[in-house]
Design a protein around this nucleic acid. Structure first.
Length: 560
RNA sequence: GUACCCGUAGCUCAGCUGGAUAGAGCGUCGGCUUGCGGAGCCGAAGGUCGUAGGUUCAAAUCCUAUCGGGUACACCA
């Protein structure tokens, strides 16, 4: 309907004024109608007529063309054209589905990216939730999405943790690891990382040993050594980290089909960068291999250090190659923090020099960091971080205090919604007491709204629901406002998918629930003469809430 | 220093491919329950959209400058 109207106006503009203009209808405030456009204001200059005159001419044409869809066309203000649909046409808008704009496309979505041997902090929770929702949006639009994860199972952070582990064990004694209970492992390793990092900074002897351990860990990987005591400790603790990640992802309801450890991408990156060094893409500088981004308005970065070890840059080159080999994707979406925007530009620019189709298919989406209210900055280095579990537990405590229930699916919904309702890109201010609120514009508000709608349908019984998209009665004002809001659903989803912005869904669902709550405050559904119609509307409403919450990775409860 | 991002109500944020009186939530104050789920609904107070110019019939939205905050800029990830 919307698209038809836009085309109609564009055609009319061409015929009446011999001019091409792209029309994008908007939803004005209810008082003005269902759709509005300001094309006549835009055309006034080129056409050389007053905007209201242009509007009148276009309005007249609209009235002729679609009398069965349009109830009224009015001109308002300086020259806005406002269109009010017939109730039947408005009802038909409920049957419109979101566009399958990604149908048939293969997408690799990389997000979360925690490092083994380190703790999962609030930022990982945030990036995982955002990434999961974006992947959901792509899937909903028809894409085949492969969710993958990238992390450093080699590197200095591993060596730091390993150093402290050796201290704790009193040497290379892998057998002593059996004494660590499974539920204590992640905490035990997190402590080791903090201790190792402090030692690296404060103790020259420890620093030298850690650097040596770093080299040894690389060697364990390249030689696939599973026998030496140090190697046994490494593989066991590495496994603990992945177990810990899997448990966390299961808890928050996301799942990856593949981890790409840096140990796998590093040798490939090293090989590719070395090959392309010979072809002049990369160059030698002070003993290292760099890419000179200055030529492209970017900056220089080291891909292979002067010891011949691949840096993160080369590992990322290897990752791109592996993803391509594994999936031959139409699109690769990488979701990370803002801090690596410039870094990623350099890496992609370098790959563009020898495989231009890969960067062309890659989209780097970024988000801000999670800040504690009050401006405290978190550092896993110092150990004064807000861990992912801390956020979940603070939310659980808030939920319990308000509702006396402990449904983790509701708690998780509160956290996810609190993070997702803000536009991706900026920093998130997290306050344990306020951010994860259970009222107002919050996850539980929407979950409660769904439970409430389902409750109405349950109470009414199964025989009553009709198909509101085929309604043949005139709508009352409150009903009409409600239907109109529901009719926007597919447009909103299309927009969220086009921009890959989950908060668009959040904003809409909240407005939708508010619209229903206002309707429900003043109108009966059950035992009303208009029960059949209204139950149909409630059913359509509940379906939208459920689907929309699903896109956000949120559970839509029947009761709560 | 260079580049990029951000500055909208007391707080946290929508709105930003220019358009009709700048919207929510929280907080504050005041109402609604002998009714299908009150985690709800209604109302009030609260804003020079950082500042100054510019473009335009029209600027929170585009351009320039400036102030403030953040991030990134060679062997960490």
């Amino acid at each position: 309907m919307k698209h038809d109207l836009e085309t109609t106006i564009e055609t009319a503009a061409r015929e009446l004024f011999d001019t091409d203009i792209s029309v994008a209808l908007t939803h004005p405030e209810v008082q003005f109608g269902d759709y509005a456009t300001n094309v006549s204001l835009q055309l006034a200059r080129t056409v050389g007529q007053p905007p209201r005159a242009i509007a009148e001419a276009l309005a007249a044409r609209l009235r002729e063309v679609a009398p069965d869809h349009i109830r009224e066309v009015t001109i308002a203000g300086p020259g806005f054209i406002n269109v009010t649909l017939t109730d039947a046409a408005l009802g038909r808008s409920l049957a419109v589905r979101a566009t399958k704009s990604w149908a048939g496309k293969v997408v690799v979505a990389e997000y979360s990216d925690p490092n083994p041997f380190k703790v999962l902090h609030a930022g990982h929770l945030y990036t995982s939730i955002v990434g999961d929702s974006i992947a959901n949006l792509l899937e909903h639009a028809g894409a085949t999405v492969h969710r993958v994860n990238f992390g450093g199972d080699v590197g200095l952070h591993v060596a730091k943790t390993m150093w402290a582990i050796l201290q704790k064990l009193g040497g290379e004694h892998p057998e002593k690891l059996a004494a660590i209970a499974p539920n204590e492992r992640s905490e035990w390793m997190a402590e080791a990382y903090v201790a190792g990092t402090l030692a690296y900074e404060d103790d020259a002897g420890a620093k030298a040993r850690i650097i040596e351990l770093n080299r040894q860990v690389y060697a364990i990987q390249t030689e696939q050594d599973h026998v030496a005591p140090l190697a046994q400790i490494y593989w066991l603790c590495r496994g603990w980290s992945y177990d810990y990640f899997d448990a966390f992802y299961e808890r928050i309801g996301t799942k990856f089909e593949k981890y790409y450890p840096e140990s796998e991408t590093a040798p490939i990156g090293l090989k590719i960068v070395s090959e392309q060094l010979a072809r002049g893409v990369y160059e030698q500088s002070d003993g290292a291999v760099i890419f000179d981004g200055d030529k492209y308005g970017l900056h220089k970065r080291v891909f292979i250090n002067s010891q011949g070890l691949p840096t993160y840059e080369a590992k990322d080159v290897g990752l791109i190659m592996l993803k391509w080999a594994d999936y031959h994707f139409d699109s690769s979406v990488i979701i990370t923090g803002n801090d690596i925007i410039e870094y990623m530009k350099v890496v992609l620019k370098s790959v563009e020099q020898f495989m231009p189709q890969l960067p062309a298919r890659t989209t780097h989406l970024t988000h801000g960091i999670v800040k504690l209210a009050g401006g405290t900055k978190m550092s896993s280095r110092k150990g004064n971080i807000l861990r992912a579990v801390d956020v979940l537990e603070a939310a659980a405590a808030a939920n319990k205090a308000v509702t006396a229930t402990e449904d983790e699916r509701v708690t998780l919904g509160a956290v996810k919604y609190a993070f997702l309702k803000q536009r991706t890109g900026g920093d998130i201010i997290y306050s344990p007491t306020e951010s994860v609120s259970l009222e107002g514009n919050s996850g539980p508000y929407l979950q409660y709204a769904h439970a409430r709608a389902r409750s109405i349908l349950r109470k009414a019984g199964r025989e009553v629901a009709g198909d509101p998209s085929a309604l043949d009665v005139d709508l009352e004002d409150d009903e009409r406002t409600f239907v109109r809001k529901m009719g926007e659903y597919s447009e909103v989803i299309d927009k969220a998918v086009a921009d890959l912005l989950p908060h668009v869904v959040c904003t809409y669902l909240y407005e939708l629930a508010q619209t229903f709550n206002r309707f429900y405050e003043n109108n009966r559904v059950i035992d009303d003469p208009r029960q059949a119609l209204r139950l149909g509307l409630v059913e359509a409403y509940a379906a939208r809430l459920r689907e929309g919450l699903g896109l956000l990775g949120m559970y839509a409860p029947e009761k709560m």
